[in-house]
Computed example of a mutant assay.
Amino acid sequence: MNRLRYYDVHGVPTEAKAVEGDGPEPSLLPPLEADRLRLELPDRTVVVRRVRPVDRGPGGFAAGCRLLDGEILAGLRLARLSEGRPYPDTVSRLIGYDSDVAEPFALLEPLRGTEIEPLAGKLPTEQRRRFQAGLLRAVRLLNAAGIAHRGLDPRTVRWDGANVQITDFSQAALIGSPRTVTGAPPWQAPEQRPETPPGWHRGDVGPTDDIWAAGRLIFYVLTGEELDDRAKLADRPDLEVLLADVIGSPERRPDAQRLLHRLGEADPPPRPLAADPAFGRGRAEFFAQRRRKHPQTAPPAEPAAERPAEGKTAPAAEPVAVLPPGPAVAPRRGRVVSWLLWGGVAALAVVAVLLVVGR
């Protein structure tokens, strides 16, 4: 039995006895791996899924550390979004992390359900509508948290018969940050591919980036086929209406709320996560320290507002608009005199109070 030290989602240092958990844990693709631990805390025992980088797979350990950053980014933002209310079942939940050690890791709640690939074309009729609405609500939740998953596919989306669960946030990025190549065909949106098609541009991560994959996953689970041609929608009028423009350009793609409206499930969306400038500063400080200690694992230096937050801080702040300075205006003489008079009155009042107290 070992002592495990980590930070919870509020940044509070925590320590627990950790033993290897029973049973296998759903695997991850290298350079990340997952195992199961049982944590013995003072007031309870919990089973967690530990995710950590390994020195194998594309990019090795350094790439694994950067992917772990995405998992922590998403977990911290979703925790902030859910503060004071029940945590949503539709996304995996971060319990704790430590990314500033020789062997960084993240701790998550165990996954629910099964991967959706075996369910393609076989989902019971009574579960289909719940699956569609659940996946779209999960994407809408990510939008409210200010992130895009960027890796939705049959491996990262799970189903337990009642609820969707989106997992593996290793490719997550802040909405508004520059897009990078990520994901895998056919679920990979054209703007995320190594070479974008003619007429498409890389641009910045947006709230509809995950809609491309979400729409294709809905079609795949309900029909057992890949939506590789718009003509396939013509034989399925219900899906043709729901998924109109889903595989179009990001500018024309409907967002998750619009698709829920088409489905007749447009309940009020969650309130978006408020910006907090302290998180941007914390992120910049964290990566500065990471570059000093482990330069091979840190991303290139860049403005904190353009990248997801990670490490011992919550997410980066959204950029704040700075207005250009206007022409200098001379103060008005009357206003200056008025302020001087009021200042004198205030000073006399303070002196009077001190005299009374002194008695």
Results as ranks from 00 to 15, higher is better:
Lys122His: 13
Trp200His: 12
Arg179Leu: 01
Trp187Asn: 02
Ala184Thr: 15
His149Trp: 00
Pro185Ser: 04
Phe169Ala: 03
His149Arg: 10
Leu142Cys: 15
Leu174Ala: 14
Thr125Met: 09
Arg202Glu: 07
Asp204Cys: 11
Ala138Phe: 02
Leu107Ser: 09
Trp159Arg: 10
Gly206His: 11
Gln192Ile: 01
Phe169Met: 06
Ala148Trp: 03
Thr114Cys: 08
Ser177Tyr: 08
Trp187Gln: 02
Lys122Ala: 08
Arg179Pro: 11
Gln188Glu: 09
Lys122Arg: 15
Leu108His: 14
Leu136Tyr: 10
Leu111Pro: 00
Glu103Pro: 03
Ser170His: 12
Arg179Thr: 08
Thr125Gln: 13
Ile147Trp: 06
Arg150Trp: 01
Arg155Ile: 00
Pro178Glu: 03
Arg112Pro: 02
Asp160Cys: 13
Thr125Asp: 10
Ala173Trp: 04
Arg137Gln: 15
Pro194Glu: 04
Arg137Glu: 13
Thr156Ile: 02
Gln192Asp: 15
Arg140Cys: 14
Gly113Asp: 11
Gln192Ala: 14
Glu195His: 12
Leu136Met: 10
Leu111Lys: 09
Leu142Ser: 07
Phe169His: 02
Leu152Glu: 08
Gln127Tyr: 05
Pro124Ile: 06
Arg140Pro: 14
Thr196Ile: 13
Ile175Ser: 02
Gln192Arg: 13
Pro190Leu: 06
Phe131Pro: 05
Gly203Lys: 05
Pro197Met: 03
Arg150Pro: 02
Gly183Val: 09
Pro190Tyr: 06
Ser177Cys: 04
Arg155Lys: 12
Gly203Trp: 11
Gly176Lys: 00
Ala148Thr: 06
Arg150Leu: 15
Leu142Tyr: 07
Glu195Asp: 14
Gly183Met: 08
Pro118Arg: 05
Pro197Asn: 10
Leu123Gly: 11
Gly183Arg: 12
Asp168Tyr: 02
Arg137Asp: 02
Glu109Gln: 14
Gly151Arg: 13
Thr125Tyr: 07
Ile166Pro: 01
Ala148Tyr: 01
Leu108Tyr: 10
Thr182Lys: 14
Gln188Gly: 02
Gly176Asp: 09
Asp153Val: 03
Phe169Asn: 00
Glu103Gln: 15
Arg179Asp: 00
Ala145Tyr: 14
Ala144Glu: 15
Leu141Asn: 10
Pro197Thr: 12
Ile116Phe: 01
Val205Ile: 14
Ile147Ser: 10
Leu135Trp: 04
Arg150Thr: 06
Ala144Gly: 13
Gly113Ala: 06
Gly146Asn: 12
Trp187Met: 07
Pro185Trp: 03
Ala172Gly: 07
